[in-house]
Computed example of a mutant assay.
Amino acid sequence: MLLPEKIFISGYAKLPKGITSTELYSVIAVGVLVNRYTGEVFEAEASLVTSVAKDFFRNHLVGKNLNNFDEIEKMFKENYFGSARKAIISALRTCYEKYEQIVAGVEDVE
């Protein structure tokens, strides 16, 4: 039986103190809609405060592949200079690790 192609994966990370996002959320939430079989990102969203940051996040993930996580991480390290950068990368790494578990057939992915 072929499972549905699109899957939703989320990841969370603690935000640094003293930034606007922390005042609103305390953690960053990242959600990605991914192709189960190829790793391609169809849609992405993060609980960032400004629309510019949200757009940057989405525009730099949609069309990328979770199987190439090192490239995604490098892009954020080299091009995103918001205070939430480390938290974004951490939350995305959680998404990537969950994706690997899903592909490996682990049943209790949380």
Rank of each mutant, 00 (worst) to 15 (best):
A53E: 15
K54G: 09
D55N: 11
V49T: 13
F42Q: 02
I9L: 15
A46P: 00
L15I: 09
A87N: 09
N35R: 10
A46I: 11
F81T: 05
D55Q: 10
K17W: 07
Y25P: 09
Y25A: 06
F57G: 01
D108S: 13
A84I: 00
Q101F: 04
A104R: 06
H60Y: 15
F76I: 03
I28S: 02
K14E: 15
T22L: 03
E100T: 04
E40D: 11
F69M: 09
V32F: 00
V109H: 02
I28C: 02
E100A: 12
L48N: 08
V41C: 09
V52N: 11
K17P: 07
E73F: 09
V52H: 11
S21N: 08
A84D: 01
C95K: 05
V32Y: 00
F42M: 10
L61A: 01
N59S: 12
A44H: 12
V103L: 10
L48T: 04
D108P: 11
E5H: 09
R58L: 02
I7T: 11
F42Y: 14
E43R: 15
F81H: 15
E45W: 15
K6M: 05
S83G: 11
K54N: 13
A104E: 11
L66I: 06
N79Q: 10
V34A: 04
F81P: 02
E71L: 08
L15H: 01
E71I: 04
I102G: 05
A44V: 13
F42K: 10
N65I: 09
Y96G: 00
T20P: 06
L61I: 05
V30S: 01
L61F: 03
V27T: 14
A84R: 00
Y12L: 14
V109R: 01
V109E: 00
V49W: 14
V27A: 09
L66M: 10
A91Q: 07
G63H: 12
E23Y: 15
V32G: 00
L61V: 03
T38L: 08
T50G: 05
L33Y: 04
K77W: 13
R93W: 04
G31E: 05
N68T: 12
N79Y: 14
R85L: 02
P16W: 03
G18T: 02
S21T: 03
K86S: 08
L48A: 09
S26Q: 14
S83I: 03
A46Y: 04
N65V: 10
L24W: 14
Y99T: 05
E73Q: 10
N67E: 13
Y96L: 00
V30K: 01
I9M: 06
V49N: 07
L48Q: 06
E71V: 06
V62F: 06
T20L: 11
Y96H: 05
Y12N: 14
F57R: 01
Y96M: 03
V32K: 00
F69E: 08
A53N: 14
E71S: 04
V106F: 15
S10N: 06
T22Q: 06
I72R: 02
S90M: 13
K14T: 13
F56L: 13
N67G: 12
L15G: 03
K64R: 15
L24T: 11
Y80L: 11
I28T: 01
E110C: 04
A29V: 15
